[in-house]
Computed example of a mutant assay.
Amino acid sequence: MTPYYDVDAVVLDIEGTTSATGFVVDVLYPYARSRFAALLTERADDPEVARAVAQVRELTGEPDADAVQVEKTLDAWLDEDRKATPLKTLQGVIWSEGFARGDLVSHFYDDVVPALRAWHAAGLRLYVYSSGSVAAQRAWFSSTPEGDLLPLVSGLYDTENAGPKQEPESYRRIASATGVEPGRLLFLSDRPGELDAARAAGWRTVGIRRPGEPYYEQGVGDHAQAGAFDQITVARSTS
């Protein structure tokens, strides 16, 4: 039976949900890794870069870390797939420029874009909540094989403006920022810990389980689940 949800807004995770984790790991991560050194040395005075570097130093307890040490830390965090905010910020800077140059084109599963367009046309608001930075999300949605999808999206949230993805308070913060009642928000993610946190904040949840994704075998706990977006019926009541 197709899950049916009467909600006002849908909040989307990216990796493993709208898009293949493999694309991020195999294409985007190496692209950023190869450009960290140039970014840290050539644009150290850029406010966004400088802020991220300061955050790296703070997180590592190394206030005097130079560009080489910061790059080593970033590489280590990449190897661990650590969701560190300064790493995501610097990746976002590099990816944004890569998308703008045409070096990169984002990936979406075939069922995603038609669903997003249909939901948007039906009056539902769409938001993104990803561990990737807002800058990276903006580049991701604006540089797709289907063209610029940003006009479909009402807001972008990451670990900096919302908080960690497995903490209920982050979801409360998003609900407050969007002005949507928690029970009228539907969160789609492949990660059970994120789904648990969203539900604890009063949101509706559906776990997305796509074969080949890292969390497929683990499952999504006791959350409703779907293998693709076209298996979810979302509507907005007008009453």
Rank of each mutant, 00 (worst) to 15 (best):
A54S: 07
A162I: 05
D13K: 00
E62Y: 05
T60L: 13
G92Q: 06
D45I: 03
V27K: 10
V24P: 05
A76S: 12
W119R: 08
G163Q: 08
R204D: 11
A37H: 11
G92E: 04
S154Q: 12
S170G: 06
D230Q: 14
G92C: 06
A121G: 02
Y129V: 06
D26S: 14
R101V: 01
D26N: 13
T18A: 12
T17N: 05
T21G: 04
A200V: 11
R236E: 10
D196N: 14
V134T: 14
Y4R: 14
G102E: 02
G202R: 06
A175C: 02
V7S: 07
E160M: 11
I174H: 10
E48I: 14
V27P: 02
G132I: 10
L124K: 09
W140P: 00
Y29T: 12
Y4S: 13
V234C: 01
E62A: 15
Y215K: 12
F141D: 01
F99Y: 15
G212D: 01
A100I: 00
K88F: 11
F187C: 09
L28C: 14
L185C: 13
V105L: 06
L28A: 09
V11C: 13
G22D: 15
V70W: 03
P214G: 08
G221F: 05
A121N: 03
L195S: 04
T238H: 14
S189Q: 03
F23R: 10
I174C: 09
Y171G: 02
L152S: 02
A177G: 05
Q225H: 13
V180K: 05
P214A: 03
T144I: 02
